[in-house]
Simulated assay, not measured.
Amino acid sequence: MSTPTLDRETTVRRFPRSVLVSAWAVPVMIIGQFAMLAVVPVALVLIGTLRDARFKALRWGAIALTAAYATPLALWAIGPERAQSLSKDMHPVFAAIIIAVGVTFAVACHVVPRQSRIQRTNRGH
């Protein structure tokens, strides 16, 4: 019994799992009041997306997520009377923005690779 061989062009390249899991973890952590720990998945999303040229279409989304998260983090860090945690100090509007951008980016991680696969398939015919 022979196994089919796959060349580089027909191999489906998926989005890196670490970036995908991190993208979903950011909104979950913000909702769960673990905003300070969300710096880790935000960094993984940014680094993973910028590092891989195949996902150039998602770079602006990763930058938007990082900026949305960095704004309340910076305000918390430089504030004169800051709360003990970022979650307690963060304005609900900032939390809503981070959650919205995080969910949008996570959904885009599922949609963009499929669209590029469909476009490659259509060009081949």
Rank of each mutant, 00 (worst) to 15 (best):
M1A: 15
S2L: 15
S2C: 10
S2Q: 10
T3L: 15
P4D: 15
T5W: 11
T5F: 15
T5N: 14
D7T: 12
D7S: 09
R8T: 14
T10P: 04
T10V: 10
T10E: 11
V12S: 05
R13T: 06
R14T: 09
R14H: 09
R14D: 08
F15K: 02
F15P: 02
P16A: 01
S18T: 15
V21R: 13
S22A: 09
S22F: 07
W24I: 01
A25R: 06
V26D: 03
V26S: 02
P27I: 00
V28K: 05
V28I: 07
V28T: 07
V28D: 04
I30S: 00
I31C: 07
I31W: 04
G32N: 02
Q33T: 07
F34D: 10
A35Y: 03
M36H: 12
A38H: 06
V39Q: 13
V39G: 13
V40F: 10
P41Y: 05
V42C: 00
L44K: 13
V45C: 05
L46F: 08
L46C: 03
I47H: 10
I47T: 10
T49Y: 02
T49D: 02
L50A: 09
L50N: 14
D52Q: 10
D52R: 12
D52S: 06
A53C: 09
R54L: 10
A57N: 11
A57S: 09
L58W: 00
L58I: 01
L58Y: 03
R59P: 03
W60K: 13
W60F: 12
W60L: 11
A62C: 02
A62W: 04
A64Q: 03
A67G: 11
A67W: 12
A67Y: 12
A68Y: 05
Y69W: 15
A70E: 07
P72C: 05
P72A: 00
L73H: 13
A74W: 14
L75D: 11
W76D: 07
W76Q: 06
I78K: 15
G79F: 11
G79P: 12
P80Q: 11
R82H: 10
S87F: 00
S87P: 09
K88P: 13
D89I: 04
H91F: 06
H91V: 06
P92T: 04
V93D: 08
F94T: 06
F94S: 12
F94K: 05
A95L: 08
A95N: 09
A96F: 09
A96E: 07
A96R: 08
I97H: 13
I98G: 06
I99Y: 14
V101M: 08
V101T: 11
G102C: 03
T104W: 07
F105K: 03
F105C: 02
V107P: 02
V107D: 05
V107F: 04
A108H: 01
A108S: 07
C109V: 01
C109D: 03
H110I: 14
V111F: 04
V112F: 07
V112T: 11
R114F: 15
R114M: 11
R114V: 11
R114G: 08
S116H: 13
R117Q: 08
I118W: 12
Q119W: 09
R120Q: 11
T121R: 12
T121F: 15
T121E: 14
N122Y: 14
R123P: 08
R123C: 06
G124P: 12
H125K: 13
